[in-house]
Each structure stands twice: as C-alpha cells, then as structure tokens.
Design a protein around this nucleic acid. Structure first.
Lengths: 330, 330
DNA sequence: CTGAAAGCGCTTACAG
DNA sequence: CTGAAAGCGCTTACAG
C-alpha cells in the first residue's frame, strides 16, 4: 500500500491540505513548514498518485503520440524530438503505433480519451479528414504530415518529390521508375502528383508500367524491383516512396547483379541517418524530422495552454546527394 | 466536459451502481437492462475515466516498459513483441527510453510509480543489482538481458560470443579485434569474457590493442575502426558489441578502402532485420528478440496475477552466417 | 437483481 | 498561513 498525503499529514501533525500545498509549492504557505513537509515526504518515500491528481484536476500531464509504424526509424526519430519538448515541459508521453492499420488507429483514440490525455500528436494517419475533424472536439490534436488538418506540421512532399525528379532528370535519366506505398493516402497522392508533374514539365512521357506498388517497407521495395527488372525496357533510375523502400530496392538490385548506381540510380525519401551508412550511401530527400516533431510538440503545448489557433505549418525538405545516384549512360 | 456514469444513470433512470455493473459485465444484473444501458452508453459516446477507475481499484491496466535506447532497432522490435502480449491481455503500454543514461533511467521508476503501473519491463538497464532489487518491492518487474535479476529473460551472451569467435577462428582468423560498448556493464563484461575465453581455448594470444571501445552505436563503430586501422598489425576480422556498432565498422572500413569481407571480416551481435539488407549482408549472432519480449511480457503478467516465482530464463542465440565474413588469407 | 453509501487520494474554493 | 469540507468519477461491499 503506497503512502498517501494523509500519512504525511498525520506524521507532521498538519492537515492534508497543508501537505498538498507544500508539495505543490503553493504560495500561501510558510517557508518553514513547506520545507519540513517536503523533507518528510521524501524521507517517507512518498510518490503522488497521478490517478487521484488527474481525477480531481480533470486533466493529465501526458501527451499521446500515435505513429503509423515504429519499426520505421522515421517515426522513432520523430518520437525522440517530441519527447524532448514534452519532457522539458513536464509532460510525459504515451506512445503507440497502429502499424499502418486503420482499425488500430481508431481504437487508439478511445484509449487516449480514456486516459483523458492533455493532447495528442498523430503521425502518418490513415484516417480521412472527416474523422480527423472529430478528434479535436475533445482533445487538442496536432497532425504530422497531414496538412489539410487545421493544426498540423508537414514537410512539403510535392516540392521534395520534384527536387528528386529534377535532380535525376538533370543527370540525364528518362526512364525513372516510382515505387509507391501501395495505399492511396494523401502522402502517396502527393508523391505521385509530383512525379507526374516533374516528368511532364520536362516533356518526358509517363510510362505507367514504371509505376509499381511497394508497401512502405523493405519487402515492398524488393518485390517492386523484380517487377521492374522484368520489364522489356528497364528503368535507369528508381525513385522510392521512402527510405525503407529504397533499402529494399537497392538490396534487390544488387542481388540481381545490377550495380547501384552504375546500372541503376536509386533515390529515397525521408533522410534516415541509417541510409548514410549503406553501401552505396543513399541519395535521398531529407524531411526535417527533428523540426517536424519539435514544432508539433510546441504547437500542441500552445493548444493545451489555450491558444485558439496554431495553424498549419509546412517545412521544406532538402535533397541529400550521396552515392546511389549517377549520370545516365546512353 | 466528458459524460459520466451519472449522466447515463439519470437518463436510464437507474442508479450509477447499476450502470457500472452493466458496463463491467457484472453477473448480478438482468440481461435486458444490461443491454439497454450498454446501448445507451454507446449512443451517448461514453468513454470511462481511467483515472477514476484506477483510483478506486488501486491499480492500472498499463504496463511500463523502459528501454535503453529506442533509436536502436533492437529495442523497438522488443517493444513490438511485448506490445503483442500486452494488448492481447487488455493491457496497454507506457513506453519510455532512457537513452543509455542512468539518471534518466532512475527517474523513469518514479514516473512508473506515479502512474501506479501494473508492472514494468526494463531492457538494457544501466542500474546495478542493488538498486534493481528495490524495484520489486512496489511493482512487479521483469528484466530483459539482466539475468542476475530474479525475474528475467536473457539471451545467453557468453555462448553467443563464443559461437561468433569460434566461427571466425574456424575460418582461420587469428587477429580478431573486438569493438566494445565502452561502458562496463554486465552485457559488456560477458562479451569480453567470451572473447577472451574463446581465444584462450584456441591458444590464440590476447592482444589488448585489438580491444577498442565503441559506444553501442554507429559512431562508436566508425571511431573504433580508425583506431584499428592505425595498428601496425591490422586485424583480419572484427567482432562487434552489437549490430549498430557493426554497421559503423563496415561503413568505416569501406570508406578507408578496406573491402568487407575480402580484407576484413565483420561480425555483429543482435540479428537486426536491417543488417540483412546491407551490402555485404552482415554475419551476426541473432538474439531471439521476439521470444525475449514475448516471454518477458508473459512472465510479468504471471507476476501481476500473483505468481510468486517466475524465475530467470535464458534463451539461446544463433549464428547467422551471411556475406560479411570469409576465410582468412594468410 | 438493484440502490444508497462509503471511499480511492488528491485539490481547491471557502472560512477563519 | 492553515483547516474542514466538498468533490473529481468510478467500484464494491452491504442491505434489501
């Protein structure tokens, strides 16, 4: 049985109210008794009950974070930056992954609500706008990479994809494949849009057989390659939905005896640290992951503290040229 | 203001007790009113307050998980398997990383206790046995890879290291370097012990200059390599504390023009999926990560449900031979 | 099968 | 500056 405020009060011969005030650094309390009680509490090994506190204050000092998949390092890095801000502001984090599953994502909101969390951050949501707009009624929420949501912070996907494509086109590539996520979400839509736009602007005809589905992970990238290498006219470069996909793509190419970048250039998307250590190191579009998480947390904190409008921020991605890309031979 | 059990009671014209019973599937309640109330609750969008429930029942249905570093995929995979078990048993997870920092790890225990969590799992603890033994007084705890703790599940490090070393020795390697974690914890001690033991058994003299410190991550591996390549007599194989270290080691070797495995073999430890996609793919000792997490969660659940003894389990690792190792040329 | 009552451990107006 | 009291939203013996 944990010791309570009452136990301390009894031992200190004061009322529980006084103990509570001492422990919470309330102004209306004599410095002396405050110190005494704090000391006593420590010596008794007192640890407050969050449940009791949350119940009476009708709020909790924990922030919920739902991410699409924490087996993807992108989300883990995001988490780390959110955690930085949260901890610095005395919030803790309740983290959960919905493993790219809509049903699990929806269930998470119930869990968050049962905990009466102070606010939530969702990254990689699979739920459409209609549902998302409901969230906000009860708990402040900030979305990452879902810029249609009023409170959100996103990387400019369209611009990122165009950077990648223009870079490849500049290297002389004309047959550029795209390995998608395989699920029609906005993040997918934007990349595809950017892909088509960039090609069109450079008068490169769009060959639909070069657009193959992945699954957002390594396996999807591997499967996509076997499809692409069976094509009569193979691609000279492959642009991937994200870095995990690109890892699979590079691996599969190398397994099939196709040298990267000599025989085929590969470009990823995300800018995961780990891709810098691959051989060859991966050329990729870096999302400002740290900033994304940092701002999301800051905006959420503002919202929690009563700000009525925090807006939707869009951050610029960046092209990181490494060793997985080179000129087209022709 | 969220709606409460009282609101439902009023609308249904019954007492709050009845509502509580209906919602909790209590046996002593008529099937009809139960259904009615459940239906009503749903239609009113009722979501129970965990704080209130936890306060009155004096426990919570959430399990705390503390991991050393969730930027290391090892811990993320572990988390995923723990989550499987927890969710299947209607527990949710409160996860936190202490980023290989003792102080942060200690603070976590306070947080766990404030939440009156049902139990905790710690992986990669930096705290010594003395402190660990205190944890158990208040909250059931299971440790992962800390087999001196009474309730724990660990991979047999010593045996794993010997497998790796014997494999390399079998390939004809005599100058085998070891890149450590750089912190003297049991997990480090065991690896070093296994390293020395294996060499001694095969009458290979131990050259202390071949034992260099890493940091458990990629950067440490990179730094270690520059130290090793400056040696007059270079190693022909490098055994690494873990896979992340090995990734750094491979990268640094390749950067210095040293081909893996032709010029130097590399062996990791952990068996992370991602290392199978590197080029060359990494030979490594696979810890049974899934089993580790799965059993830890099961044991904790047993403990929570009153089991007095769950013991300390030790699981066997496995050598995965891939492409980063080959015969010594001599 | 159902209700009234007590209580979980806190916080916070309200008096003094 | 301090205390007595009420109440947060539930659960659960105790009666009936």
């Amino acid at each position: 049985m944990p010791i309570s405020i009452k136990d301390i009060a009894q031992k200190a011969d004061v009322s529980p109210s006084t103990v509570s005030r001492a422990l919470n650094d309330h102004p209306r309390i004599s410095t002396e008794t405050k110190k005494q009680i704090q000391e006593l509490a420590r010596s008794m090994g007192y640890v407050p009950s969050q449940a009791a506190r949350n119940l009476v204050t009708q709020q909790s000092a924990t922030i919920g974070v739902a991410v699409a998949d924490y087996l993807d390092p992108f989300y883990v890095s995001l988490l780390a930056s959110i955690e930085d801000v949260a901890l610095a502001n005395n919030y803790d984090l309740f983290v959960s992954s919905f493993y790219r599953d809509r049903q699990r994502e929806k269930k998470l909101f119930d869990t968050f609500y049962e905990k009466r969390l102070a606010g939530i951050i969702v990254a990689g949501s699979l739920i459409d706008d209609g549902y998302l707009s409901q969230i906000n009624r009860s708990i402040p929420a900030v979305l990452v990479n879902c810029f249609s949501y009023p409170y959100s912070v996103s990387a400019d996907k369209l611009s990122g994809v165009k950077m990648a494509l223009e870079y490849l086109i500049g290297l002389g590539h004309h047959r550029i494949a795209y390995v998608s996520q395989g699920v029609s979400l906005r993040s997918e839509f934007l990349r595809l849009e950017g892909y088509r736009l960039a090609l069109r602007e450079h008068n490169i005809p769009i060959d639909e057989s070069l657009i193959v589905p992945g699954d957002g992970g390594v396996i999807g990238g591997i499967k996509a390659v076997s499809q692409l290498l069976d094509l009569a006219e193979k691609p000279s470069a492959i642009f991937c939905f994200n870095d995990m996909t690109a890892i699979g793509v590079m691996n599969a190419l190398q397994k099939r005896g196709c040298q990267v970048p000599r025989d085929c250039s590969v470009v990823g998307f995300d800018g995961l640290d780990i891709t810098g250590y691959f051989h060859p190191s991966l050329t990729t579009i870096r999302q400002p992951i740290f900033q994304l998480g940092y701002r999301a947390a800051e905006m959420l904190l503002d919202l929690i503290q009563g700000a009525s409008e925090v807006g939707a921020e869009i951050l610029e991605p960046e092209l990181i040229v490494r060793a997985s890309t080179t000129h087209a031979v022709n």
